Simulated assay, not measured.
Amino acid sequence: MRCPYCQSEDTQVKDSRPAEDGSAIRRRRVCPDCGGRFTTFERVQLRDLVVVKKSGRKVPFDRDKLARSFDIALRKRNVDPERVERAVTGIVRQLESSGEVEIPAGDIGNLVMEALKALDDVAYVRFASVYRNFREAKDFHELLGELKADETTG
């Protein structure tokens, strides 16, 4: 693994342990050249997924981009990072086990909305406002109405 500080290719693993409910391995590394310390994660990847954008363009699936979507929606919200990581890992597992290699971006967005709804209502509304491209206040009223209806039936 290349050192992110000095680009040396000779780094050493100092500590390894399970992470993310055993679905990844966290490794602490040190660079003998510059002394820099950093962490890497190793995860199982069942298949290379491709996201099919609304325009038809295809891009490789990026787990980090998925995690950033959660981080943006949950900014300044008090949600346990472990719960967020479990949600991201759950979505990735669901996509990988679907049997499909090409996943429509809309399907991923729907899974994110579903997960955010379970994590935090404010984050759900934030994400939905961008994902559904809200244009006016009534769009928010409709979404809040949906949330309220779910609370009374759920």
Rank of each mutant, 00 (worst) to 15 (best):
M113N: 02
P81C: 02
G22S: 10
E102N: 00
R68Q: 15
T153L: 05
V92A: 06
V84T: 06
Q45G: 15
P18I: 11
V50E: 10
D120I: 04
V84M: 04
V88E: 05
R86H: 08
R93K: 12
S97A: 13
L74Q: 02
R135C: 01
E20W: 07
Y131M: 11
D62S: 09
G154C: 07
D80T: 03
A73H: 00
D62H: 01
Q12E: 15
G99S: 02
D107E: 12
T89V: 11
T11N: 14
D64E: 15
Q12G: 05
A118Q: 14
G145K: 02
D107Q: 13
R86N: 09
E100M: 14
C3R: 04
A137H: 10
G106C: 01
D62N: 11
R83Y: 02
K76G: 01
E82K: 14
V13L: 13
D150M: 01
C6M: 07
N78V: 10
A137F: 12
A24F: 12
F41Y: 15
C34V: 11
F61Q: 12
V130Q: 07
L143N: 03
N110L: 08
V88Y: 00
V122C: 05
C3T: 06
K138R: 12
G90M: 06
Q12L: 14
V92L: 07
T11W: 07
F140V: 12
D139G: 04
V52C: 09
A123K: 00
D64T: 00
G154Q: 11
V79C: 09
V122A: 09
F61A: 14
D10G: 07
F61P: 12
R132C: 01
P4M: 06
V84K: 11
S8L: 04
K76P: 01
S55Q: 09
I91G: 07
V79L: 11
T39W: 07
R83S: 10
L49M: 09
A128G: 08
E151T: 11
H141A: 15
A128L: 13
C34Y: 12
E20Q: 13
A118T: 08
E102V: 05
A24M: 08
T89H: 06
A105D: 01
G90R: 03
R28K: 13
C6F: 04
D10M: 03
G145A: 03
L49V: 11
P104C: 03
V30R: 07
S129Y: 08
R29C: 12
N133R: 15
V84Y: 00
D120L: 04
L144P: 00
D120T: 04
R43S: 11
D21S: 13
L111V: 01
S129H: 10
G36L: 03
E82V: 13
L111H: 09
P104Y: 04
L119E: 03
L49E: 11
C3F: 01
D107I: 04
V122D: 04
P4G: 04
S16V: 14
R43Y: 13
E82T: 11
N78L: 10
I103N: 02
A118P: 00
G109Q: 01
A123W: 00
R126T: 07
D71A: 13
P104M: 03
D120C: 04
E100A: 15
D120Q: 03
D121P: 07
